[in-house]
Nucleic acid binder design. Structure first.
Lengths: 117, 117
DNA sequence: ACTACCTCTCTACAAGACGTAGTACTACGC
DNA sequence: GCGTAGTACTACGTCTTGTAGAGAGGTAGT
């Protein structure tokens, strides 16, 4: 999986935060603080679609864009991908376990416990 | 933390696999399959040092390069960084927990249990 | 129908990262 | 002193990303 640039990330954040699919124009309005040309937003949406991060469907002349996967799925995938990188997965997992803060360790523990059942 | 390119990764892999620090020449020999110019190896070692992935110490005229952190630490850091990205960390952690295979879930569980003690 | 406007697709360009390497200088061994 | 190893500096092509303009083709108001 490829990474995302900064603007790409901002736009994904907007779409992840939204329930339904948005048009380029709507995304542009939501990202108004950056004052981007409409075509800029369109270009990035297009690239994200080509990279597989978004899907789009027609709505009249316009496209509506929507994340192909949830942010959580994306994050989990990134984590797994990092994990792929090492020969010694257990060592990395142990380090990771030590690094997560207490409350998160608790969440993980609970998630793992549920798996068992 | 920045990511690594392909050649950079190969070189980090070599150094991570090694116990002691290596010179550019030694790295070049170990990566012989790619038939790179010696200066190419040196350049990449230099860049990795500047990025903080390697440390180097003098050995006569030559430098000896060594990873600044273990591969496991790097992997764990990447995982944490991915986790930073989401607003809802627990959702991502739950997904992650579901995605790791059984034996790895076991390792994680054990690592988390040890933390408790 | 004319005009204004919206949206799309295509193309472009600058900056930075990365793979790759040459050049020029220095120091050491023989 | 000559060859060799090693360094620092510079360079260049390619790809990615942020940014956007140009042109085409609808749509709607007057």
């Amino acid at each position: 999986m490829k990474g995302l640039g900064e603007l790409e990330r901002s736009i994904m954040d907007i779409l992840w935060a939204e329930n339904g699919p948005l048009t380029a124009r709507e995304v542009g309005r939501l990202i108004a603080d950056r004052d981007l040309a409409p075509t800029t937003v369109m270009t990035v949406l297009d690239r994200l679609t080509r990279k597989g991060f978004l899907t789009r469907t027609r709505d009249g002349r316009a496209w509506r864009y929507e994340p192909a996967a949830s942010r959580d799925a994306y994050v989990a995938e990134l984590m797994l991908e990092a994990l792929e990188m090492t020969g010694d997965r257990s060592a990395a997992l142990q380090r990771f376990a030590q690094a997560v803060s207490g409350s998160e360790a608790e969440i993980l523990r609970r998630a793992l416990t549920e798996l068992e059942e």
